[in-house]
């Protein structure tokens, strides 16, 4: 039986202080109190490609950007009910992040699955930013519990429920795992390296396929049979 009790847990306020960010180590578990906002391709595109000013001053609001579309329903009185929240896969947004960090002061990305090491080195490390990954990834009910209030839902009409910028007041919001630190180390990549060592062995003794496929090779002049 593994000792998940060995894993260190920390509780931080958002916006997260630079000193708190610097102290985080990959593999630690984080719970947040304070303010976070959602933003994904819709928001990035509107601000960075179309040049629209963000609907709020993010520099003073908070430095935590959550890659997420909440399951939210509008009630008849116009208020929002957030049931569960689950992050969406972040690797798709890497091209936006260098400018996003520079223009909004964002220092912490919460998402699903992390980014590549090269993204950490080229975008995160220079900006003093880190990545927190959600857990599971299906911990939607736990994360939903941590959302105390929808402070604002910006650009709902322009971008729709899934892509809008939701400003969320959170309390004991987590668990989140520190996936990358200020040096750009990645928890996923360190685990992958360990898993990769054993992969070739799994295929030992399995006979070669009757028909290969393009995709295994990029050389379209190769015979497949």
């Amino acid at each position: 039986m593994a000792a998940s009790g060995k894993i260190q847990k920390v509780r931080l306020n958002a916006p997260i202080a630079d000193s708190d960010i610097a102290a985080l180590e990959i593999g630690q578990v984080v719970y947040l109190d304070g303010l976070i906002y959602t933003g994904r391709e819709g928001v990035y595109n509107r601000v960075l490609a179309e040049g629209k000013a963000p609907p709020v001053d993010l520099k003073t609001l908070t430095n935590v950007n959550f890659h997420c579309s909440p399951a939210a329903a509008k009630d008849t009185d116009g208020s929002f009910r957030v049931g569960a929240v689950t992050a969406t896969a972040s690797f798709r947004f890497s091209k936006w992040l260098p400018r996003w960090f520079a223009e909004t002061g964002c220092k912490v990305i919460i998402g699903k699955g992390g980014m590549s090491s090269s993204d950490y080195q080229s975008a995160f490390v220079p900006a003093g930013a880190i990545y927190l990954t959600t857990v599971g990834y299906g911990t939607g009910a736990l994360l939903g519990r941590g959302i105390k209030k929808v402070e604002a839902a910006h650009w709902l009409d322009e971008l729709g429920v899934a892509q809008a910028m939701w400003v969320l007041r959170v309390e004991n919001f987590g668990p989140l795992l520190v996936e990358s630190d200020l040096q750009g180390r990645s928890l996923f990549e360190e685990n992958n390296a360990e898993v990769n060592d054993k992969i070739a062995k799994l295929y030992d003794g399995l006979k070669a396929p009757s028909l290969s496929r393009y995709g295994e090779t990029d050389d379209k002049t190769k015979e497949l049979i």
């Binding site: 579309s69 569960a84 299906g138």
Partner: peptide, 13 residues
């Protein structure tokens, strides 16, 4: 938590 709060277990339903 999902059962106790009657909320979806994962937000990506």
């Amino acid at each position: 938590a999902a059962k106790a709060d009657r909320r979806a277990m994962c937000a990506d339903t």
